[in-house]
């Protein structure tokens, strides 16, 4: 049984990917820096403060999160992840996207050929519902369809 959520497309696009869920703020620098620095092909999360994601592979996942937090290098980290094809398949925000994540996603959209649809304002119910491994399909209009 599929469940459908409607959000706002920040970067429009479509994809299908397994969910990876962070219930707390996603610290972009802390999450990506070690994996990118040492060429971890699975891009495992390096943020020791994020119990949901720590050491889990992020590449190719439908990353579900409330917002990103932390250093203002966050946008360039996300841009670099996209430019080197190490990005999540999509990023799905329950709240309005924060300025750093938006910057990274927009820079990737304007300056690279990478595809990483971004949808925000999916609501708290979305994040409460999501579990790791659920299959997520994103449509260009911001519709997110979830199958268990």
């Amino acid at each position: 049984m599929a469940k459908v959520f409607k959000g706002r497309p920040v970067v429009a696009g479509s994809c299908t990917a397994p969910a990876l869920v962070s219930h707390g703020g996603f610290n972009t620098l802390a999450s990506f820096q070690m994996a990118m620095m040492f060429g971890d092909k699975k891009v495992k999360c390096g943020d020791q403060n994020n119990a949901d994601l720590y050491k889990k592979p992020m590449k190719g996942t439908a990353l579900c999160l409330p917002q990103t937090i932390g250093s203002t290098t966050g946008g360039m980290v996300l841009y670099t992840a996209c430019a080197t094809n190490n990005q999540p398949a999509c990023m799905l925000f329950s709240k309005t996207i924060d300025s750093l994540a938006a910057s990274g996603a927009i820079l990737a959209e304007v300056w690279t050929d990478a595809s990483m649809p971004v949808v925000d304002e999916l609501g708290d119910e979305f994040l409460d519902y999501m579990k790791d491994g659920m299959t997520v399909t994103v449509s260009p209009d911001g519709t997110v369809t979830v199958e268990e």
């Binding site: 203002t72 946008g75 841009y79 300025s99 910057s103 820079l107």
Partner: peptide, 9 residues
Amino acid sequence: CNRNSGMLE
């Protein structure tokens, strides 16, 4: 100032 990202600033 907003919390801009590196590059965009």
